[in-house]
Design a protein around this nucleic acid. Structure first.
Lengths: 227, 227
DNA sequence: TCGTTCATTTCGAAG
DNA sequence: CTTCGAAGTGAACGA
């Protein structure tokens, strides 16, 4: 990784056009071809950047100009850096950095609920995970104790969009033989208020579930089986 | 901005839990409180990070452990860095970096189309930009040559969500006196296939427009006025 | 603060 | 290759 701290001006042209006026910034060149321009403020996001695969050209020694190019379909993305003054220019060999191991994303929630659908409603049991419709897969397809179909849409944070998505699925599902009465449940670690309101107005159920509780407090939930 | 290159292990706990095993990484501390962990690969995204406002604690000199904390509602986000070996640790005073000046985002497209609504359909003329409904503003409200109402939803890239949004608006608009026949047009630099299909199935029009053409080729379009 | 929308989203998976 | 949906999305804006 090459780290250049320099007073520079940056011009981007591609999906849009943008200019960064002259100021001191960090230029970060990763070995995978990534190019990032960071200011000392502005949080998470670089002020400008180019994702791999790129071609990077240097002019001058020390560099006075850097051009980063990338093919983007029929057009070309281009980053043009005019360097006024270099304050630091170092290279570090970082070797391999192991990837991030995540836990708690939507998939984990879906897997837990697939194994414990009864927390979504008494007597509920799983028919299939990723149940296919002609417009995409429903997260969980279940039946309740009366044998009635129940489609479940799962989000980490369920917004109004999740309600729309579940509505679209139900629209299709209910045209299928024997599934006209299919119900819908929206499940999330959080279900925002407007999503609750819209869901209720459409006759959909919603439920907030906690991943930690799902995993840690198994025994209390299991009592439902005896109900 | 403080740049630390170090062999370290990173543990994140907050909205989810994640671990980065021991490896050489760049730790970036911005003066606004941002904390970013970058590997030499992985493109645009830091492997781990925390956005402002944060509290950063150092243990040891040179640092052996860094803890970054942040209040996130009722819980706490936390980044725990165990440093094995420091390869570099420098601080740069960067002063103020001016913000990015952009052109070509959705707002620019909306402004151009507001000035040239006839490209969306012959004889179309603008009534109002950001026309208010009780569930939010329609991007453009127009009338065609017959005086019929036309609501326009604009996206840089129009997906199925844009169709849902336009549908919701029309649902409301068509309840208003004299607007029961209001049509809908979906406009975007790109309109993805599923959006086209869903739009057509709901009786909505869609059109792809090019910002450069809108701006560059004004004269040919103007002939429509004489039609 | 909450909720919505946009983003040069990026990223990843699936067709 | 495109298409589609998730993201610790982030960030801006409005109620």
């Amino acid at each position: 990784m090459r780290l250049i701290v320099a007073r520079c001006e940056v011009v981007y042209s591609g999906r849009l056009n943008a200019v960064l006026p002259e100021a001191v910034r960090l230029l970060m060149l990763k070995s995978d071809g990534s190019f990032l321009v960071h200011a000392d403020t502005g949080g998470f996001k670089p002020q400008n950047w180019m994702t791999p695969v790129t071609v990077i050209e240097f002019e001058g020694e020390p560099p006075e100009r850097i051009v980063v190019r990338k093919r983007a379909g029929k057009t070309e993305d281009r980053l043009d850096i005019r360097i006024v003054q270099i304050l630091s220019d170092v290279e570090h060999d970082m070797g391999e950095a192991s990837a991030l191991a995540k836990d708690g994303v939507e998939r984990d929630l879906q897997l837990e609920l697939a194994g414990r659908p009864e927390v979504l409603g008494e007597g509920l049991h799983l028919v299939e995970r990723e149940w296919q419709t002609d417009i995409g897969p429903v997260d969980l397809m279940c039946r309740d104790r009366d044998g009635a179909w129940v489609a479940v849409e799962i989000k980490r944070i369920a917004t109004i969009d999740a309600v729309e998505q579940l509505s679209r699925y139900l629209e299709r599902i209910q045209t299928l033989p024997g599934m006209a009465a299919c119900r819908g449940i929206l499940a999330g670690q959080r279900v925002v208020r407007q999503a609750r309101t819209l869901a209720e107005s459409r006759g959909l159920s919603w439920v907030e579930v906690d991943l930690a509780s799902l995993r840690g407090e198994r025994e209390p939930e299991l009592t439902l089986f005896s109900g």
